[in-house]
Amino acid sequence: MSAISELSSISRKKGKATPEEKKANSRDNKAAYIFLLPWLVGLIAITIGPMLMSLYLSFTDYNLLQPPEWVGLENFTRMLTDARLHNSLGVTFTYVFIGVPLQLAVALLIALVLDKGMRGLPFYRSVFYLPSLLGGSVAVAILWKQIFGTTGLVNQVLAMFGIQGPGWISDPSTALGSIILLHVWTFGAPMIIFLAGLRQIPTMYYEAAKVDGATTLQQFWRITMPMLSPIIFFNLVLQIIGSFQSFTQAFIVSGGNGGPSDSTMFFTLYLYQKGFGQFDMGYASAMAWLLLVIIGIFTAINFIASKYWVFYDD
């Protein structure tokens, strides 16, 4: 039996629980809740209360300075006619559907290259991770302007070829693109997770595949992809969730106003402006729950689709 077919038999093995296993499982309840205890306490004491509070606030008019007043569905009906909100949804969707695949592809590619034994590996890993260390530092805004400003590095290079580049971060037609690029630039986190995942794949599979004469590409599709699929799935789910909530980069680059002309007005940025800038926390809470529903739908789709391409060894 070749390693590859062996592998697929393992990964497909979703055996039903035997009676004995079921008996064993029923014993897990006590142990499970003990293991879950810290998380449950945190959930009940810290997370759920504020979450439900925000749900309640989404049905109120709440300006932060005075007690909330119940207004029923008014916040939600207001959202239907809020053109800026619709625009912000468009911006966010564009960002998610372009930024996430792009960033994950780059992260996976670099992780694959770096996983193969080569000299200077720790060095490269660090170099590629460095940009992600910066986080939401104020310095990022300055750096980005130095590169993509009207007189920034990119335009200086273009000028050498006689091209007059636009102000990448200040032109409404390119500003979102530059933020997506900033997002891709910080691919360090998914790259690290991919690297750790790659390390979990037993090397013997590859050796067996080599013996069977599989090409590198075949190895990638038949071994790496299935074995890495739980991790790819994790990155995909979390990156989608994270990108829908993306806030810091746009906030820093646009100075918090989502400009120019709302072209980088992300949903959460608008939510923040409503809540803290315009003291409309009721509306902001309603927006948050709308986003939660949207993210929830996409995550559910992800989980359903995962049955067809993610392989667990259990």
Binding site: A141, K145, G149, T150, P166, G167, I169, S170, D171, V253, S254, G255, N257, G259, P260
Partner: peptide, 12 residues
């Protein structure tokens, strides 16, 4: 200044 430069100046 040009529109782009004006927007940049705002955030500067």
């Amino acid at each position: 200044p040009s529109a782009s430069e004006v927007v940049e100046a705002e955030a500067a």
